[in-house]
């Protein structure tokens, strides 16, 4: 059996054609359009160089707010999903009863559309009749009842919380797979040497999980930077622009017919994502040696 058998290149040509047609070509066109004044009010597309990029990056506080919100959302949800996902994974592989059932329940929000999740949470978080505030008030905790999606203080944290709730199940499943792949021998040897839970966690589990953590982090970050549906459904960027992120701004630009500007915003997001992902993969792909 020839393990190194090399297949002809054209076996992959079908996939390559589809990839070029539906991924690469639109992406390149998008980058091209970001250098034009393409809009819905004219059939002309004139090359205008870096003008859109100057508009976005020249210190306009609104655009800077979109970038700041996107980065903040990404950081907080990535950290929260990783920590909670890891915690739940550790719990479920530790021999807890009905682990499969719990895993299924925790994972299930992941398969729902954010439209559904958003509508449910909009109802739950309604300041007047929502389940959360009604429950708090019924317990005499009126002071804790907030306008969760309508106030400057709580709108962004609420979106982050809903997104974390929805996404942590997926990260948990990744971690469970990673945890099950760690040989038991290491833990047995560590136990014989008298290592406690903390030592095993930080000396064996986390180092051995680094490839999984890398994947989870890259997934979380690329998802976080591209976030749209969570914000759009829950607050539509409001109140004011308080929860607007880059992709809601892209949507808004396209909605207004400023297609060139919208493309430029997308291009900026693409560059940010590429740079961050590159460094994360480089940083976290260091070899683990024992």
């Amino acid at each position: 059996m020839n393990a190194n058998k090399i297949y002809p290149w054209y076996f992959s040509s079908g996939a390559i054609v589809l990839y070029l047609l539906f991924i690469v070509a639109p992406a390149l066109l998008g980058i091209y359009y970001s250098f034009t004044d393409w809009n819905s009010y004219s059939s002309e597309k004139n090359f205008i160089g870096l003008e859109h990029f100057r508009t976005i990056l020249a210190g306009d506080p609104t655009y800077l707010l979109f970038i700041k919100n996107t980065v903040l959302f990404t950081l907080v949800t990535s950290i929260a999903k990783t920590i909670l996902g890891l915690f739940l994974a550790l719990l479920l592989v530790s021999g807890v009863k009905a682990a499969n059932l719990h895993r299924m329940i925790i994972f299930s929000p992941q398969v729902l559309s954010f439209l559904i999740v958003g509508l449910v949470f909009k109802s739950l978080l309604d300041p007047n009749n929502g389940f959360v505030n009604v429950t708090l008030r019924s317990m005499g905790l009126d002071v804790l009842a907030q306008n969760w999606l309508g106030s400057l203080t709580w709108a962004m944290p609420s979106i982050m919380a809903v997104d974390t709730w929805k996404g942590m199940g997926y990260i948990m499943v990744l971690f469970i797979a990673g945890l099950l792949a760690i040989p038991r021998d290491y833990y047995e040897a560590a136990s014989i040497d008298g290592a406690g839970f903390g030592q095993k966690l930080f000396r064996i589990t986390i180092p051995m999980l680094m490839p999984t953590i890398t994947i989870a982090t890259v997934l979380n970050i690329t998802y976080g930077l591209r976030v749209f549906d969570a914000v759009y459904v829950l607050t539509n960027g409001g109140p004011g622009n308080a929860t607007d992120v880059i992709n809601t701004a892209v949507y808004s630009s396209f909605a207004k017919g400023y297609w060139g500007l919208g493309s430029a915003l997308s291009t900026i997001l693409f560059v940010i994502m590429a740079i961050i992902s590159f460094f994360i993969i480089r940083l976290m792909n260091r070899k683990v040696e024992y």
């Binding site: 309508g150 400057l152 539509n236 109140p239 004011g240 622009n241 308080a242």
Partner: peptide
């Protein structure tokens, strides 16, 4: 409309 909502919330 978004700006006005922002004003009601104290952001603008």
């Amino acid at each position: 409309g978004k700006d006005l909502s922002g004003m009601f919330a104290g952001a603008m």
